[in-house]
Write a protein that binds this DNA or RNA. Structure first.
Length: 223
DNA sequence: GTAATTTGACCTGG
DNA sequence: CCAGGTCAAATTAC
């Protein structure tokens, strides 16, 4: 039951991935313990290390993936089998999502390409679907959907899902692996993983999920 | 000319 | 069967 990502990763890269994930798990556990205490000394430094670890992991996975894709030669749309075509319609699951509510549609630092618009039942305004511009060039899986909530004052709900693995980072300040905090600004509210709006609880929920995610990969195997 | 957007058709999960 | 997500041809923008 390995993920396609892991299947496309060489044993050398897999070793690196596991080392990075183990490191990420260790750092996340430390951060979780740290946040439980009233004084968060050193938490910021730790967050930087954790993000670095996950970025390195994603980078390794991404490089392994692209080489396999090139050799397969199955990217031609006209030769897609019915099964392949159906695969493309598979809906996003309950994967990691960041929901941002904002009054402005300012540039979030990524290049987006609109691929659809849909009138939603019981919704006053249509929903707009965007994918990363570099989806096909670099296999970036990031998506977002934007829905207007109200007209006056204008309010939009923006849901991000999938990670940016593309290499275009116009704004250095928001290059850290789509960390939820990257989207925060003065006039927006960000909700993580459908949890409550309590920041303290969010931190714990977020960290728990990170540890859970890493645990999902069987780190004891292969070694 | 290419790239992005629009929009109706198509597909899937519930 | 239907609502929501995606595709892709036609259209528009640059």
């Amino acid at each position: 039951m390995k993920s396609p990502l892991l299947e496309n990763t060489s044993s050398c890269n897999l070793e690196k991935v596991i080392v990075e994930l183990n490191r990420g798990r260790e750092l996340t556990n430390r951060l979780r313990e740290m946040i439980k205490k009233p004084v968060d000394v050193g938490a910021e430094d730790l967050v930087g290390k954790i993000m670095g670890s996950f970025c390195a992991t994603l980078s390794i996975l991404n490089s392994g993936e692209s080489t396999e894709e090139d050799s397969s030669g199955s990217s031609c749309k006209s030769t897609l089998s019915l099964k392949d075509r159906r695969e493309r319609y598979k809906r996003r699951r309950t994967l990691e999502t960041n929901i941002k509510v904002t009054s402005t549609l300012e540039d979030d630092g990524h290049a987006w390409r609109k691929y659809g618009q849909k009138q939603i039942l019981n919704a006053k305004y249509p929903r707009n679907y965007f994918r990363c511009t570099h989806k096909f060039e670099q296999g970036c899986q990031a998506n977002k959907l934007v829905q207007r909530i109200q007209e006056n004052p204008p309010l939009f709900r923006i849901t991000y899902y999938g990670h940016h693995t593309c290499k275009s980072f116009p704004k250095v300040s928001q290059m850290i692996c789509d960390s939820p905090n990257d989207y925060e600004d003065s006039n927006s509210v960000l909700l993580n993983f459908n949890s409550t709006n309590n920041n303290y609880n969010n931190h714990h929920h977020f960290l728990d999920m990170m540890v859970e995610t890493i645990d999902f990969v069987d780190l004891s195997s292969e070694f």
